[in-house]
Write a protein that binds this DNA or RNA. Sequence first.
DNA 1: AGTATGTCAGTCAGTACTGACAGTCTATTT
DNA 2: AAATAGACTGTCAGTACTGACTGACATACT
Lengths: 198, 198
Amino acid sequence: MDSSSGKLESSDKLLLAALHLIAEKGYNGVTTQEIATAAGLSEKTLFRHFGSKQKLLEAAFDRYHYAAEMKKLFAEKLVWDLEKDLLLVTTTYHEIMNRNRKMIQISLKEDEGQLPGFRERTQKHPQQLLEILTNYFIDMSSKGKIVTANPELHAFTFIMMHFGAFMNDLDSHKSYPGITLEPFVQESVRLFARALRP
Amino acid sequence: MDSSSGKLESSDKLLLAALHLIAEKGYNGVTTQEIATAAGLSEKTLFRHFGSKQKLLEAAFDRYHYAAEMKKLFAEKLVWDLEKDLLLVTTTYHEIMNRNRKMIQISLKEDEGQLPGFRERTQKHPQQLLEILTNYFIDMSSKGKIVTANPELHAFTFIMMHFGAFMNDLDSHKSYPGITLEPFVQESVRLFARALRP
DNA sequence: AGTATGTCAGTCAGTACTGACAGTCTATTT
DNA sequence: AAATAGACTGTCAGTACTGACTGACATACT
């Protein structure tokens, strides 16, 4: 077990393969056979490690779900300059969403029931972010730096903008060829800053 | 076959049941047995009508996919008042997305391959809308009524906002309790109008 | 008579999961 | 150096169940 080498352990190979395939084809759309083969292992090994297909999925979710506290990420980084702060929020948001990309794809495809408690966890970040951003807007307006109305709705609107963009990018849906994330982020922040200008 | 009565024909009952169940649990998550029972019919009848589960899904998609040309919807309704027009665009957008709600849920859950050409059709509206809105912004800025920069990115940003909100509402994910669509639509339009003010 | 449906029994393929046995590799002991 | 033990994996054959799909026959309604 050389855990410091580049080689992955068998169980990790299986978890990753499961994550990829289930995100792509859905839980019922993939066979244990497929997963094992994709991991370069035998089906038997899969069952020896995880006991069942369900437990494999759960283990994969546990292992690779990224769930840091957002509050800490922002607590000391905000500089109370609207555009700069929104940019920080946005890039952090997309970073976290991308880290959890596979998990999000899976919980979109599967209905609750199959995935006990999965949805809760994928919803943790969005809710935290809404709180943080709402409070930020409240503070900013009390400093007189932005308009002072509907901070929660404004935060929600801002988040939906980027949630939409993320979802659009997911699966490479490519509904909108020629538009990439980078310029969108820039311009959307600039627009939003204009909108909130007192 | 009294097609004018309130009673649905058997094939329609099956199509609707299939649409509901597949949207909820995914194609592989539902059995033909379940669908037939939900429609109040026997499994045999399902196969007599559609021959196979695949063809049932395709028929459901064909029958209930709403695909009007957006251009016609707007051609005569725009009044060249930014807020009013954006409100029209938004409500029309949400109306069409909601009409196709089930179809969108299905094409999200299933990967291409299972659904030949489905994605294309669910992407038709968004693309049309981007064109229309982009052209609208170009015209508006040449009339001097809004800022004159990045019309396509602005249109994209606006659409992503509402796409995000729609996706968030889909499946009643309810990531954000206490926030409803109506006030969001109002406020987001107002915000956007402020942002584009020259 | 003709059409739509239900019932029932059954076929066939796929799939999660198991048990028995054997091979390989590593570390430790002799 | 050789032998041994233990952990991990592969192969293979097989079980049990599910689920799409069929055929034969009966029933009801028009």
